[in-house]
Amino acid sequence: MTATICATAAEAVAGIEDGAVVLVSGFGMAGMPVELIEALIDQGATDLTVVSNNAGNGDTGLAALLATGRVRKVVCSFPRQHDSWVFDGLYRAGRIELELVPQGNLAERLRAAGAGIGAFFTPTGAGTPLAEGKETRELGGRTHVLELPIRGDVALVAAHRADRMGNLVYRKTARNFGPVMAAAAGTTIVQVRELVDTGDLDPEAVVTPGIYVDRVVVA
């Protein structure tokens, strides 16, 4: 179905269920869908699994969601940062579960989910603690590790601009996880800075085609 344009962030995040796997775009604060996360906090879903590159910065966005105690598990590549005190406190208190994933595996596992790939072998992580317990195979003389897709129930994505079809363009390095997450979730919810009329985005410049996008809100 083509994308729905929502009037408010609250409308955009309606229906996210307890226990959902939520993909959250962004690399640090660049590309983080702060307004959608704030709306999710107000919406109240709990027992969430959050998949994101980091585990929150400062006290806003993802960090604010973690601070509510409604996130059971974080799947990410780089939780520990100078300003990740919210996650650090929860983790040290044993109040949040962490699945640490090499960043390229995180991206490729999301991509695989969006592309219908059931699993893939990669040399990344072979022989390290992050491959323990995983199936391995020798391919081309190198040890490869079997990695499974990461599919979200919901993706919360920040993009720069959308048209009414849900086609998206991003801006500079804020693109990061947006395109792979948009394709990897059952329901993809996007906040943009600007909504333009259909036909006003150069088709050659569209990064995420609207087929991956379910809801759009200007925030």
């Binding site: 590549s77 780089f78 939780p79 520990r80 940062q81 990740s84 996650f87 650090d88 983790y91 040290r92 962490l98 640490l100 994933v101 090499p102 960043q103 390229g104 595996n105 040399p123 990344t124 992580g125 072979a126 022989g127 390290t128 603690p129 992050l130």
Partner: peptide
């Protein structure tokens, strides 16, 4: 062999980022 992402200390919060992909690729 390279070790650069985790000290293994019990109270350390591990973070790997792109290090394994870079080292391998």
């Amino acid at each position: 062999d390279l070790a650069n992402w985790h000290t293994g200390a019990p109270d350390a919060i591990p973070a790997v980022g792109g290090a394994m992909d870079l080292a391998t690729g």
